[in-house]
């Protein structure tokens, strides 16, 4: 059995070296700002590394702001309660004015985007401007993909250590005909921060 342990040790060392070399070959991408205000920023850029590639996006894409508003405004999420295994009442992801602003500006961005780009957005909370909601939208086929990376996260918090399980936990609630992205076949591997909205009935 010792040979097995020794072989495994060699394999492990090789894998670590490969991963280290692979990490140095990543490139960065310059974002193009489409809209900027005191409370919001919309820019075009590549989907950050770490998300699966779903093939070229259907960009540029023309989407009616009213249609987008009907998708964004009712979108809800739920978060953990102070008690284990309990959830508080679902809440809207975007306020009315945030939804209107995004519905107005995101179509412009999606109309300019290249197939490899996504529209990234950051909106500040109205009540507490130091909290922000951050995410990406893009079109694949006839579906709008919305990924939320941060939801009303206080900017001063700094690094949220993932190994603190009591950190702010939340998940999106897909509406009618919407669904969460799944990373594995047959609906397994749901990603709770990634919702897909069909654009055609």
């Amino acid at each position: 059995m010792r040979w097995l342990a020794n072989s495994f040790r060699s394999l492990l060392t090789s894998c670590l070296l490969l991963a280290l070399v692979g990490s140095t070959s990543c490139s960065t991408y310059q974002n193009l700002v489409v809209y900027q205000s005191d409370t919001a920023l919309i820019a075009l850029g590549e989907l950050p590394a770490g998300y699966p590639s779903l093939g070229p996006n259907r960009h540029p894409y023309t989407i009616d702001p009213k249609k987008l508003l009907t998708l964004l405004e009712p979108l809800e999420y739920r978060e953990g309660s102070f008690l284990p295994f309990a959830w508080v009442q679902p809440r809207r992801v975007f306020t009315m004015s945030q939804g209107k602003m995004l519905a107005q500006e995101l179509p412009k961005a999606l109309g300019m985007a290249l197939p490899q780009e996504v529209a990234a957005f950051t909106v500040a909370d109205e009540e507490n401007p130091d909290r922000r909601t951050k995410g990406f939208t893009f079109i694949v086929g006839d579906e709008l993909h919305l990924i939320l990376e941060e939801l009303r996260k206080p900017s001063y918090l700094g690094e949220q250590k993932t190994y603190q399980p009591q950190a702010h936990g939340w998940e999106l609630i897909p509406g009618n005909s919407q669904r969460l992205y799944t990373s594995r076949p047959e609906g397994k591997g749901t990603v709770p921060h990634w919702v897909i909205c069909p654009l055609k009935p």
């Binding site: 102070f82 284990p84 306020t95 009540e127 399980p165």
Partner: peptide
């Protein structure tokens, strides 16, 4: 709509306060 907006804001603030006040786990 204005009333709904203010209710949403109040709900949001209350949820923040409740959610952040204390959490039990293990």
């Amino acid at each position: 709509q204005e009333r709904l907006g203010s209710v949403e804001k109040r709900q949001s603030t209350l949820s923040d306060e409740l959610g952040q006040s204390v959490k039990l786990g293990g």
